[in-house]
């Protein structure tokens, strides 16, 4: 307040003193700016208002400081914006001339390049996502189909295995039946042999009776008829026994052939069983109760399909994250 009043009472300033004051104050401003303090400005020095050169110098000095200040603020802010990917924020070129404008243009071009690079990265990420989607679709579809096919294959193999076991059982039963038939035929032959012996002895007895009847003359005529009848009966019995033996032999041959065929079927089916089990192992993995459990358990087709899906899922998650 007192200084203002003093100024009003003493409007006359010594010109040289005003110049010295201007130099002192504005030199301090220049030194502050040179040290990086761009807040300092040349303020009006009392008594210098009518000095045209001083006023012009102040305008020029402040314009220099304002432009430098603006350049520093704009370059820092526009580069920060570019690094934050706010590419719409550019270096405003108004008020920037010559070297300032060239520098500003360079910064804007750098920002434009960064924006373009960002767009390229976004496009690549988009393509990667599309690729990931396609891969996922394909893998999921394949895994589902493999899982469905392996379920069906497993069921079929299980059915086949059961049928094979059943067939082996049937073939064994048929062999047993064949053996029993052979035994029965042997017994029949034994019985027929006894019958044949009895028929032979009967024939011999009938012959003797015929001779004795002839010796008896007319008294033995009736007995001779009976003896002839007995001989005929014994002949028929012997013939029948021979036919039975022939038929039993034929039957034994047929049974033997049938038993051989059944044995062959059983053998073939027994050979088939390990193959069916191998199919089941491939589909379902290690069958429980297998001897070689010390080995790492074999992984079935369905399990492998699931494993593939999990692995691809992990891969896709990483692929998408990097976007």
């Amino acid at each position: 307040m007192s200084r203002v009043l003093r100024l009003r009472r003493e409007p006359q300033h010594d010109e040289a003193e005003v110049y010295r004051e201007v130099v002192a104050q504005w030199l301090a401003v220049c030194r502050a700016a040179a040290s990086g303090d761009l807040e300092a400005r040349a303020m009006a020095v009392p008594g210098s208002e009518h000095l045209a050169d001083v006023t012009a110098l102040r305008s020029a000095l402040n314009l220099l400081l304002d432009r430098t200040d603006a350049y520093v603020r704009e370059s820092a802010a526009s580069l920060e914006a570019a690094s934050d990917e706010r590419f719409h924020r550019q270096f405003l070129l108004n008020g920037m001339s010559s070297s300032f404008r060239t520098g500003a243009g360079t910064i804007n071009r750098a920002g434009a390049h960064m924006a373009e690079a960002r767009r390229g990265l976004d496009a690549a990420a988009g393509e990667r996502h599309q690729l990931a989607d396609r891969l996922e679709d394909t893998v999921m579809s394949v895994a589902e189909q493999v899982a469905a096919a392996s379920t069906e294959l497993g069921a079929t193999a299980a059915g086949l295995s059961d049928s094979a076991h059943h067939a082996v059982g049937e073939a064994d039963a048929a062999s047993t039946t064949g053996a029993r038939l052979t035994e029965a035929a042997q017994e029949i032959q034994d019985v027929v042999r006894v019958i044949s012996q009895i028929a032979a002895q009967t024939q011999l007895l009938a012959l003797n009776a015929t001779i004795e009847a002839a010796r008896a003359g007319d008294a033995g005529r009736g007995f001779a008829v009976v003896a002839t009848e007995v001989k005929q009966l014994a002949d028929t019995t012997a013939t029948s026994a021979e036919r039975v033996v022939a038929q039993v032999q034929t039957m034994q041959e047929v049974v033997s052939a049938s038993t051989g065929a059944m044995g062959s079927v059983g053998g073939t089916v027994r050979e088939m069983s390990p193959m069916v089990d191998a199919v089941r192992t491939a589909v379902d993995g290690q069958v429980r109760g297998d001897a070689d459990v010390l080995e790492a358990p074999a992984q079935g087709l369905a399990h492998l399909a699931e494993l593939l899906r999990e692995e691809v899922g992990t891969f896709l998650a990483v692929m998408r994250e990097r976007g």
Binding site: R3, V4, A40, R41, A42, M43, P46
Partner: peptide, 12 residues
Amino acid sequence: MPSLPATTGAVV
């Protein structure tokens, strides 16, 4: 910081 001239403030 520039010092404000004495002619500013409540006086004006």
